[in-house]
Write a protein that binds this DNA or RNA. Structure first.
Lengths: 347, 347
DNA sequence: CTGTTAGCGCTTTCAT
DNA sequence: ATGAAAGCGCTAACAG
């Protein structure tokens, strides 16, 4: 009996010999229905394969049970993993997930201009991207709870890693390996030019070097768009310096992958000729032997969702929540060798 | 004026000095409203920031304007890219995207048992996974259009690559490079044991070797779960053979990445000691110099969505649609060298 | 515990 | 071209 969805509550009620009201109560397991009646209604509903109309139910009860996920780059591991974590707890809580993929700045502005999620959701989660002031103003029009997953977003409660701490783990690792000429390949997001995506990842570089008494050489800092191809670009630039770094700290594993490919092509060995460390622990990093600072991504999604649910229940929650990161030492970093034991570090 | 969503059509109508009926017509740009009136209504709606209640509107007009995407592994590039393609055309057509992430077999059976999307969507897209018969039966209960993206699914209209052809491009490439001992690392999905995920990718191996007059050595076939860690496993097994292959064809780039890591650790060089080719053209493949058969993923998503929209409009469409693949030769494959010019190919 | 009665906010005949 | 009125399918008082 295919399009069984033609059956409505009234039918079930009639079949069960009760009023629609009672049937409704039985189905939504509210109080005030005798076990026998409820059982009968449930049995009938089951038998005829009945499901409530969410539109009607939502209209009547003024609820939506839906949350919007606004995601910039769904095809990237990080965002997918975040969505996966968010989704699992939201679904478990009976919420449906409406996905709004804002791949480029055009999608982005369309989303905030038109607010396609208006009146459709109880909350929105902005996944790992900074919300501009005007955008925040627009979002406000929706009048719903907003939280941020995987990126600090002063404006909303958020959960993410402590970028500064993570970056410190990376840079300190290099420092401990006695490197002093440490390059940094930083990432910006082309969709948000002039917006330092992860200020903490930059600041930590300065702070660590300073703490180690090393003066920052601006030439060693390369800022590129996100992505392996640009990581490659950044590395190439560093290699072209008269005095290249002996180690590089990349803002993300994917940047590092690109950097490593340039090194390989230049005939330089990792880690002997160049140490490299990054942040993320991408699923492929173990296979590329990349030393990195791991962050738990699906967990961040789950925590964000839990925070959101608490907020929706009207509970108080922290404005910020940080999850810990952990340095994973693999084969891409090694102790700086002194000049005499060195073999071909300078191109 | 934050929760502006309290305004209803009636308010707009009043403010514009018309009846709700007229206001409704004006907003849904139906016929039968004088330009002047329409303009006035639109102006008011705009000014007070009005949006229709999708629940009420949907209830009244019996429509949903939503499609469900059922996605197995959202954190993997392939699925994310597919979703991105699907989403862009669906959104452009005014549909909202409901995401159902079925990560493991438990999620899966829950999805098909409970059919959480019932009565919520106009269609469902199963993204790159085979639907079992019982599952199809359940899906039927929803009484909506179903299409498959990125994987053939005899049961539903679908768009995907021709696996057999793609695999042939890969294996023939190896054959042309004079390899004769060609290994295959095939992938199965742990969530669907005993289900050959991509039969065409296996069959083509047999067919190509046969066409080349080479007898298939079962020892050269290694079937593993999806993922780099298992690709590594598969490669290790092949390497442990008394007479290992000189080239390997992997079902997917991510399998190949794992395989390559094992080779590197074993001190074997790619491609000198082992050629390796795969299918996908993962965004990182260019940086790992992997020869592979590229498939256009977001395009498949777009095409699937277009096919779905056509179906929803009641048009006829092809039951199957194949997108072309293309061999991308990079550095992981090379001509088989004869024994005498060989250096250390046998562990 | 159960039935009756109003709506929820919008669309859509059917009149005018 | 516009308005009045009757629902769409369900839930939430309010009685009993």
């Amino acid at each position: 009996m295919p399009p069984q969805d033609k059956l409505e509550l009234a039918d079930v009620a009639r079949l069960a010999g009760v009023s629609p009201a009672t049937a409704s109560r039985a189905l939504s397991n509210a109080y005030g229905v005798s076990p026998a009646t409820r059982a009968r209604v449930l049995e009938v509903a089951e038998r005829v394969n009945y499901v409530v109309s969410p539109e009607a139910s939502g209209l009547a009860r003024g609820t939506r049970q839906r949350v919007a996920l606004v995601v910039p780059h769904i095809e990237r591991w990080f965002f997918g993993a975040m969505v996966s974590g968010l989704g699992s707890v939201l679904r478990a809580a009976g919420f449906d997930v409406l996905l709004y993929h804002v791949g480029d700045s055009e999608d982005r502005s369309r989303f905030f201009e038109q607010l396609p999620a208006r009146r459709k959701v109880d909350a929105v989660v902005v996944v790992a991207f900074p919300v501009a002031d005007e955008e925040r103003a627009r979002l406000e029009l929706m009048g719903v709870t907003v939280v941020a997953a995987g990126g600090q977003n002063a404006a909303y409660p958020f959960v993410c890693i402590d970028d500064h701490a993570a970056a410190r783990q990376a840079v300190d690792h290099l420092l401990q390996l006695r490197h002093t000429r440490i390059g940094m390949i930083g990432a910006r997001d082309p969709a948000w030019p002039n917006w330092p995506v992860r200020p903490g990842r930059i600041q930590a570089y300065y702070d660590c070097l300073e703490a180690a008494g090393i003066e920052v050489d601006p030439a060693l800092i390369s800022t590129v768009d996100w992505g392996p191809e640009h990581g490659a670009e950044g590395m190439a630039r560093l290699l072209s310096l008269r005095e290249p770094p002996t180690a590089v700290y990349a803002h993300s594993d994917e940047i590092a992958f690109g950097a490593m490919s340039v090194l390989r092509r230049a005939g330089l060995r990792v880690p002997q000729d160049m140490s490299i460390v990054a942040i993320d622990d991408h699923p492929l990093s173990a296979f590329l032997d990349l030393t990195t600072v791991a962050q738990p991504v699906p967990e961040q999604g789950k925590l964000t969702a839990q925070m959101l649910l608490a907020l929706l229940r009207g509970e108080e929650t922290d404005q910020a929540m940080h999850v810990p990161t952990k340095l994973v030492v693999r084969g891409s970093t090694t102790r700086l060798r002194s000049a005499e034991e060195n073999t071909g570090a300078n191109m």
